[in-house]
Simulated scan of single mutants.
Amino acid sequence: MFGLADIIKFLISFFVILPIVTLIHLSGHIFFVTLFGGSEKKITIGSGKRLFSFWNIEVRRYYFWNGACEYKSLRHDTRVTNTKIFLGGSLFNLAGIFLVNTLISQGILDNSVF
């Protein structure tokens, strides 16, 4: 059965970890957009009304719900570059998984929440 500690872990995961993972994922897309000469890049975390923005990152009211990245044009716009842009999010998530697992196996992070 689930206890109070599990509910707290769920809330931390939902309201803190999930938006961080979304930001890492979208950063992977934007990294490859930047690599291939994209212009007017923007990351949006969440949905609803805009709460605040800094640099090219916009945070919305329901920050835990959704995410998106936008760009206008690419200097190198081919099928291969678009494939790398689409895979960028998954590659950054995979790198994050390996990083967190390494930190857990080294005893630097506690594995209860991560």
Rank of each mutant, 00 (worst) to 15 (best):
L18F: 10
M1N: 07
R79T: 11
T44P: 02
K9I: 04
I17T: 00
I20V: 15
R75Y: 07
T102S: 01
T83N: 09
H25W: 08
S73W: 11
G48V: 05
L99T: 02
V59S: 11
F98L: 05
G67Y: 03
Y71T: 14
H25F: 12
R75A: 12
V80P: 10
I30N: 07
R50V: 11
I45L: 13
I104V: 09
D110K: 07
G107E: 10
G28F: 14
W65S: 15
G96Y: 06
F98E: 00
F36P: 11
F31G: 15
V59C: 12
F92K: 11
F2M: 08
S90I: 15
G37W: 08
V113I: 11
N66Q: 13
V59T: 14
I104M: 02
D77L: 08
F92H: 09
L103T: 01
I108Y: 13
M1S: 08
L26S: 04
I104H: 01
T81H: 14
L99R: 03
H76Y: 13
T78R: 11
G107A: 06
L109G: 04
I97S: 03
R79V: 09
T34L: 12
S27A: 14
L35G: 03
D110F: 09
G107S: 10
I43C: 03
G48I: 04
K49I: 09
G88T: 05
I108K: 07
R75Q: 14
L18H: 02
G107N: 09
K84E: 04
D110E: 08
F98H: 00
I7Y: 12
I12L: 06
I85K: 02
I97N: 01
I43N: 02
Q106D: 04
